[in-house]
Amino acid sequence: MGIAAIFKKELRAIFASPVAYVVMAVFLALSGYFFWGFLARFTFYSIQASMNPAIGGGVNIMELVLGPLFQNMGIVMLLMMPLFTMRLFAEEQKAGTMELLLTYPVRDGAILLGKFLAVVVLLGCMLALTATYPILLMAWSAPEPLPILAGYLGLLLAGTAFLSLGLFASALTENQIVAGSLAFGALLLIWVLGWSADLAGGTVGKILGHLSFLNHFEAFARGIIDTKDLIYYLNVTALFLFMTLKAVEARRWRA
């Protein structure tokens, strides 16, 4: 009951404000641009391949179009998810509505999950809109459907991990810009950890590599579901949701 009430309230707030539409539109524009770019390159390779049978076997639509597209969508999502989450707690803390919300007979965890599920639905809508690209491809070619679904699963999992981190940042402050910046900075840092992994080498490098968002997304982008990556994203999501719960509880003590 509690979760449902919060979820409905948040969903209404999300779709009543222009932020959701603007972010989705920007995301679609950027991913559309990437799609066009990769598709143009693919066409060029295909024409070359048809003229030179020696390289004919190496042209694969998942590898050349959708894989890179998913990779780039992941990066754009990383930039945009903080925009979805930054207001969730910060706005309520600033407006003081948090005080009233915390005295309703709803558990802190239910408040948190209600808000989280609402932005996950928003993310789902955004990703569903990009399904036009693979559907367009299917009209002219025959890409394998399962690897595409694996790619989308990866995007959804990575996205929810980003959202949970953003939610945590939002619970820390009453300033939306601060919440957004914190989330964005932390996400970018965790994403690029993989780069330092190569430099560090050894055990440290391995650990850094495991922590990176980037490394765990690569397999999904190629259409492969690896349980290691699956568990990684679920863990990150659970960890940040737990930390958000603690941050909300701490709010009561500090109030």
């Binding site: 009430a5 407006a95 509505t97 948090m98 005080e99």
Partner: peptide
């Protein structure tokens, strides 16, 4: 509460419906 914090972007009915659900 003292400063009556309410959700400005909801109508009165939407807001009270939410409060009733939450309660």
């Amino acid at each position: 509460p003292e400063n009556v914090p309410l959700y400005g972007d909801m109508t009165v009915r939407q807001y009270l419906t939410f409060a009733a659900e939450a309660k």
